[in-house]
Write a protein that binds this DNA or RNA. Structure first.
Length: 417
DNA sequence: CTTAGGG
DNA sequence: CCCTAAG
């Protein structure tokens, strides 16, 4: 594809599209090369180390801590897309050989692959600090990008122009409504639709006109296979807009990685066919999700001994109860390990230390996860901190934020008592 | 949102 | 690890 005159999204390089694998799924020819390119962009987004992502970082203008959102969304995502179902004529671009298609990712293969990787986020988790941000692309940036694309016949849709919207609408909707559709209307040849997702498939229902709410045709865009332990595989909310103009078909796909908050409180106006169809989409997604709500539990991650040390350091540093501070300072790079997780771990450690109070002092096992035995020094520190805080709690007046002083102060208190 | 507590 | 009540 000729990228001349088209602004590459996210500062990515406009190299020609080539088949790529990303996070365990191969990028087939989906709708057109734009989507694939977006996926390639996604790959570099997630896989590349922080220092290689200056362009992206600065473009987003949010700092890399917001990338944690994407990480977590990808964790929710945990899907592999297999678009080999896609008809050849759709999009008219098939960079894959027939073998590629046939060999394309079978669910079992993908599943095995993902299991081997164990957790996709391991690949990039270290690069992306956690975030509580609600969005990773400001709306202004979306608009800016759209305006830059304005004037092109049909530009390119990036995978993630998700704008912040408390109501739960998706950024692409606005893009479609404000830019894409007007363009298409002027050309008089619109084929708009929406992608619906069920448990493992994505369909694209197209509409001939806005009056007609009934899908003219439903096309199976693809299916995804969930990872073994992954839950919430239905959280992916995909939206597709296909537009024909000048004899070309340009299509957009967007992915909503945000987890559905239920109950879904999005009150969308139903006079808009696009929006209303989306709300239908949301409904189905929500229904399906509530079904598979049993496996809500996150993949259990073993605490390493290093993490425990960091936890103890954090408690020594900030004091008990400052779980958020501890998280921010000592577990900033760990996208998992929420403050609650850290607190829970401390609770467990405390229980353990109380349980094994006097026994097996001499048996110091260095194997942590294998022997399931907490090293002696760790246990010692746990008891130290525990007794420290239980005793110095009474005469501890404020200034718990004073981290530089708190430790010495507490140590003093301990020695005093 | 952050913590504490119970499940 | 999840959920929720309470501040």
């Amino acid at each position: 594809m000729d990228w001349t005159g088209i602004v590459p999204p996210f500062g990515m390089d406009p190299r020609p599209y080539s088949p790529e694998t990303f996070a365990g799924f191969k990028c087939h020819s989906v709708v057109d090369e734009n989507v694939c390119h977006s996926m390639k962009d996604m790959k570099s987004f997630f896989m590349e180390p922080k220092h290689d992502n200056f362009a992206v970082d600065s473009f987003l203008g949010l700092g890399m801590e917001n990338m944690g959102l994407i990480s977590s969304k990808m964790e929710e995502f945990s899907l592999g897309l297999d678009f080999s179902f896609l008809p050849d004529e759709y999009g008219g671009l098939d960079p894959w050989s027939k073998q590629d298609r046939e060999a394309g990712l079978k669910p079992e293969i993908l599943d095995g692959f993902l299991d081997e990787v164990e957790d996709v986020e391991h690949i990039y988790a270290s690069h992306h600090p956690p975030s509580t941000a609600n969005h990773f692309l400001p709306e202004t940036q979306v608009k800016k990008e759209v305006s830059e694309l304005d004037g092109e016949p049909y530009g390119l849709m990036t995978f993630s122009t998700e704008s912040h919207s408390p109501s739960g609408s998706i950024g692409l909707s606005e893009w479609s409504k404000e830019t894409a559709v007007p363009h298409a209307e002027s050309s008089g040849n619109v084929k708009d639709g929406f992608a619906t997702t069920n448990s493992n498939e994505m369909h694209w229902s197209s509409y001939e006109s806005e009056d007609d709410r009934k899908p003219l045709s439903t096309l199976l865009l693809g299916s995804w296979v969930g990872r073994g332990r992954s839950r919430n595989k239905n959280l992916l909310n995909t939206r597709c807009t296909s537009l024909e103009s000048f004899g070309e078909t340009k299509s957009c796909l967007s992915y909503d990685f945000r987890p559905r908050k239920e109950p879904l409180e999005s009150t969308l106006s139903s006079d808009d066919p696009i929006t209303s169809s989306e709300s239908e989409d949301d409904k189905s997604v929500t229904t399906i999700k509530s079904k598979s709500r049993s496996d809500r539990r996150k993949h259990q991650r073993m605490w390493t001994i290093d993490e425990v040390v960091k936890l103890l350091d954090g408690i020594s540093h900030f004091g008990l109860g400052k779980w958020t501070d501890i998280k921010n300072l000592f577990f900033h790079s760990a996208s998992h390990r929420t403050p609650v997780d850290i607190r829970d771990k401390w609770r467990n450690l405390l229980n353990y230390s109380n349980k094994h109070n006097g026994d097996e002092e001499g048996a110091e096992k260095q194997r942590w996860s294998a022997g399931r035995t907490i090293p002696k020094d760790i246990l010692h520190r746990v008891r130290e901190l525990a007794s420290l805080h239980s005793k110095s709690l009474c005469d501890f007046h404020g200034s718990s934020r004073n981290s530089s002083m708190s430790r010495k102060k507490k140590n003093k208190n301990k020695k005093r008592s």
